[in-house]
């Protein structure tokens, strides 16, 4: 049990980091702070993937260009796994795209309601419905 945890200590701490992000999302009513929590969660997920791709004693997956040109690459060289790196590169860029849409929504909500605290927003919606007599 203890060895299982010791060999996966990185993942355990990264799970805690993810939960810190999730807590920040739920425990605040402020929409900007919520998006901050989401981006912390997201970065922690990236860390999880990159931790999996690490190989002890390995090098970054980049060849020496002179060895490559003269076809003298060491066949026994150890590299870290490049595939998770590629997936996470895509995810980082997509993450920033979704964050910008979220922030644009927050700015519009602020324009329409004058607040970005979700209690105030819920109250404003409720009183609107009362006026309409729903």
């Amino acid at each position: 049990m203890l060895e299982v945890l010791a060999e996966r200590f990185n993942y355990a701490v990264i799970i805690v980091l993810m939960m810190v992000g999730l807590y920040a999302v739920i425990a605040t009513g402020n929409l900007v702070k919520r998006l901050v929590g989401l981006s912390i969660f997201q970065t922690s997920v990236f860390l999880l993937y990159i931790s999996v791709s690490k190989v002890f004693g390995g090098a970054p997956p980049i060849f020496d260009y002179k060895d490559l040109a003269y076809d003298k690459l060491d066949p026994n060289a150890i590299y870290s796994n490049p595939l998770p790196h590629v997936l996470i590169l895509t995810a980082i860029v997509v993450g920033v795209a979704t964050l910008s849409v979220g922030l644009a929504l927050v700015v519009r909500i602020r324009e329409a309601y004058g607040s970005i605290e979700d209690d105030t927003l819920a109250e404003a919606d409720y009183s609107l419905e009362l006026e309409k007599g729903v």
Binding site: V32, S39, T43, F46, G58, I88, V96, L99
Partner: peptide, 25 residues
């Protein structure tokens, strides 16, 4: 963790552009 490409993308996009967007918002 040997992910140098991810490192500089995160530094440029995550630490740079995200922070600017959040500050603006």
């Amino acid at each position: 963790l040997d992910a140098v490409d991810v490192g500089f993308t995160e530094a440029a996009v995550g630490a740079g552009i995200s922070t600017v967007l959040l500050l603006g918002a």
